[in-house]
């Protein structure tokens, strides 16, 4: 909150007046006392407005980040690569599945065009549905950075050739530049990408997490050494438990193991 210099001068004057008035006849409230009340009142209101503005901004920021990510999904699923790339900050990074890290907007553009075989928009007969669901948005203290986890559900394929189910979580970072939220880091972990016929019970990962890095080498290697389905791993969370991790009361390990005899629905 900014305080205007004139307001400061007037509040000093107000204090002086109040002090002087205090020496005079106090039998009835004077006009100056009203002014004192008003000045203090305005300062309080200014404080309150500033606090509420900050809180509303946080709600708006979280919404803007959801809008950005969902829009990313709407662009990518149509092969609108230029629109998708324009959601990124200039020095952003992109790392999808096991393709490694692509640094900067231009490299990110090359990556998406490689995904689209050099073409803007989908090919005839191509399906590339990418549903952006399950946001967990966490705003930074400074109001200009944020992180979010999302799940991406993929229905991909080429009619007459192949079809896949895919899914996995994003752990993305965002930056606010000149009042506009952009991606600073997109990181998607591919939990599965498996052929439609048979699905995840019958098939290993369809592309072993490699989309285009065999044709367009990354600027940096993958940030972790995860393998592919059926290997399973837990992509780290950017957030801590919003309540608290449960700490069980001491129970013999054998009991827990016995209780844990997996019963699948």
């Amino acid at each position: 909150m900014t305080i205007k210099p004139t307001a400061l001068i007037h509040s000093s004057l107000l204090t002086l007046v109040a002090l002087l008035a205090g020496c005079g006849d106090q039998s009835e409230p004077s006009a100056t006392a009203d002014m004192a009340t008003t000045g203090a009142e305005i300062a309080t209101l200014q404080q309150q407005v500033a606090t509420l503005e900050t809180r509303v901004q946080q709600v708006k920021d979280a919404n803007a980040i959801k809008r950005l990510q969902r829009t990313y999904g709407y662009y990518v699923e149509e092969g609108l690569w230029d629109d998708a790339v324009n959601l990124f900050a200039d020095n952003a990074t992109l790392e999808l599945a096991r393709d490694g890290v692509y640094i900067g907007k231009e490299r990110i553009r090359q990556y998406y065009y490689a995904l689209g075989n050099g073409q803007l928009g989908l090919r005839e007969g191509q399906l590339n549905e990418q549903l952006q669901v399950m946001p967990v948005v966490t705003l930074g203290e400074d109001g200009t950075t944020a992180s979010a986890r999302w799940r991406n559900i993929l229905l991909t394929g080429q009619l007459g050739e192949h079809a896949e189910w895919g899914e996995g979580p994003f752990e993305n970072e965002y930056v606010k530049e000149n009042g506009v939220w952009k991606f600073s880091k997109v990181r998607w972990q591919q939990a599965i990408l498996v052929p439609y016929a048979g699905g995840w019970a019958k098939h290993e990962d369809y592309n072993k997490g490699i989309w285009v890095s065999d044709k367009l080498p990354p600027d940096a290697p993958p940030t972790d050494d995860h393998r592919w389905w059926p290997e399973t791993y837990l992509p780290p969370f950017h957030f801590s438990n919003p309540v608290a991790t449960y700490v069980p009361e001491s129970a013999p390990a054998a009991d827990i193991e016995a209780a844990s005899a997996g019963v699948t629905p």
Binding site: H10, L13, L14, L16, V17, A21, S30, A31, T32, M35
Partner: peptide
């Protein structure tokens, strides 16, 4: 006090 009040009241 009255003088100061008169001035500042206007400004205020």
């Amino acid at each position: 006090t009255a003088l100061a009040a008169a001035i500042s009241a206007t400004l205020l």
